[in-house]
Design a protein around this nucleic acid. Structure first.
Length: 152
DNA sequence: GCCAACGTTGGC
DNA sequence: GCCAACGTTGGC
């Protein structure tokens, strides 16, 4: 099993929204970055666990945990001209963008803030520390365990 | 709201 | 296929 971190803007879609989704499973749509897409398409598997991170907000932080319930599928929004995720250059026969499906697991008791992550010398691998713009990134098993502990 | 970092686009 | 211009992300 692998571990991941997904970014989301809470104004658009928060961990609470994920928790309250009556369908209980949510298609993680709108990833429009190739590096992130490649992780989703090639490596994110059912049963993998995911930190949900809130970005572009007052206190950027890891808020809690979700689990992957379906592997990559074509993101239909890329073909919808009405959608903010519309990509007119995506070929219909070879769709460019995919999404996975996740389900809410839990909220951290204490969100682990970006500030705390940056200040913590024990966290060295996490891409969040360096790659500012990546919206889907792997988390090593050891740092996953460590961050879960910080969130308790 | 500013702006640094960095990914993407497109002319050559 | 280089690289300048442009657009977007996201912390502050």
């Amino acid at each position: 099993m692998n571990y991941w971190l997904f970014k989301t803007e809470p104004d658009t879609f928060s961990l609470d929204d994920l928790k309250n989704n009556p369908n209980s499973s949510t298609f993680w749509e709108g990833i429009r970055n190739y590096q992130a897409r490649n992780f989703l398409r090639d490596e994110v598997k059912v049963g993998d666990q995911v930190f949900i991170y809130h970005s572009s907000c007052k206190v950027p932080a890891i808020m809690g945990i979700a689990v992957v319930t379906a592997a990559a599928a074509v993101d239909p929004h890329q073909f919808n001209p009405e959608s903010i995720y519309y990509d007119p250059k995506s070929p219909a026969d070879k769709p460019r963008w995919v999404g996975v499906t996740v389900q809410y697991l839990s909220h951290f008791k204490k969100p682990v803030t970006l500030q705390a992550i940056k200040a913590d010398p024990a966290i060295t691998d996490l891409a969040l520390k360096k790659a500012g713009r990546l919206s889907v990134m792997p988390v090593s098993a050891s740092e996953w365990q460590y961050l879960v502990k910080l969130g308790q």
